[in-house]
Nucleic acid binder design. Structure first.
Lengths: 186, 186
DNA sequence: AACTGATATGTCAATGAGTACATGTCCAGA
DNA sequence: TCTGGACATGTACTCATTGACATATCAGTT
């Protein structure tokens, strides 16, 4: 039940409404760490309230409810954070990369190019996001959540590009072994 | 429905039994790309047979069924591979990293150390795996699937360590701003 | 002949998660 | 005053996934 802990983690920073939390998922968590949408978040907040992990600390004009983390919630989060276990992973992007080696050489090469282009687009977006964040922050501020996420994203996109290039090089090497023959006769 | 495509990808390499496929998930896909267990794999293979994406090409002594990819399956895989979309992501490990910034400074530091230690253990395991694989391979062989996965794993563990270190540095910087400009003007 | 561990495949109930549906407020600008 | 976009929260149905249960073969050992 990682969603629960994701919400606790966000609320540990400061109290927020379900709407706020949903936005923070969209801008950071959902991209690289843990996807969730509002239809999942709202009911979970309710359940967590029943379980005493969070509580409604304020109600706004439009029926909005601001949730805060309770002591019990803080303890639960801390406990979970220190479990060194990597839970199950799901990522279509990485899966696609892995299956690269199952394609024929030409297709694989085409796909690599596509992956690299896609990674570059994503990286450009992330760099813009970083600039927006840095521009809006005062010196001495704790960097906002989204800044950390963007940095992770940038590094991850770089990893994808590098790995894809490495993989295609491996495939090339095994396809045309050591004795190099030029563009020669057949 | 990524499981389906993961299975197609594995079967594109060569025909395999559900048992084989399950092992390959355990040793490669499940760790960094897409987790699945046998209780999920077997029924899916059946459904895929009905849908004509795979077919039973052989039956072994112990009731084992060897599945092969069909033309229709190859086409479906290829189509899916070239969609540039990153689907939803789920990774407890990354989630934990992200929530780092929600912890108190001391806790965050302790956790970083733990993350680094854990990453080192994983990396050591992966390096061993790589050695086993390289030792067993003949020059000119196409590198096996697990080799690609291990390489990805190594790079990903490195990313986790680097990012975690970067993150803690950011938190330190904002916690103790440099109101004195150091002796540097080198 | 019985045991053990790896091979090999399945089902099922309960939970997790995605998509679509559904409702309503507040505010700024046309 | 009307409209559209951001704010704000929910439900319902379906499908995906997990974990536990269940079965049986085979090879090598005791």
């Amino acid at each position: 039940m990682s969603l629960r802990h994701a919400l606790l983690g966000l609320l540990a920073d400061r109290p927020q409404t379900g709407y706020d939390l949903n936005k923070r998922f969209e801008e950071s968590l959902s991209r690289y760490a843990w996807h969730a949408s509002h239809s999942h978040i709202y009911p979970e907040l309710k359940r967590m309230t029943v379980d005493g992990l969070v509580e409604v600390v304020d109600e706004g004009t439009r029926g909005s409810k601001t949730y805060g983390i309770t002591e019990s919630g803080t303890a639960a989060l801390r406990e979970w954070m220190f479990i060194p276990k990597d839970g199950p992973v799901r990522s279509e992007a990485v899966l696609r990369l892995f299956l690269l080696s199952a394609l024929e050489a030409e297709d694989a090469r085409t796909l690599i190019d596509q992956v690299i282009a896609h990674a570059e687009t994503e990286s450009a977006e992330l760099r813009e996001a970083v600039q927006r964040i840095e521009a809006a922050s005062q010196p001495g501020d704790k960097p906002p959540f989204a800044r950390f996420a963007a940095e992770f994203g940038l590094r991850f996109q770089q990893l994808q590009r590098d790995w894809a290039q490495w993989a295609i090089d491996q495939l090339d090497e095994s396809a045309m072994p050591t004795d190099d023959r030029g563009p020669s006769s057949d």
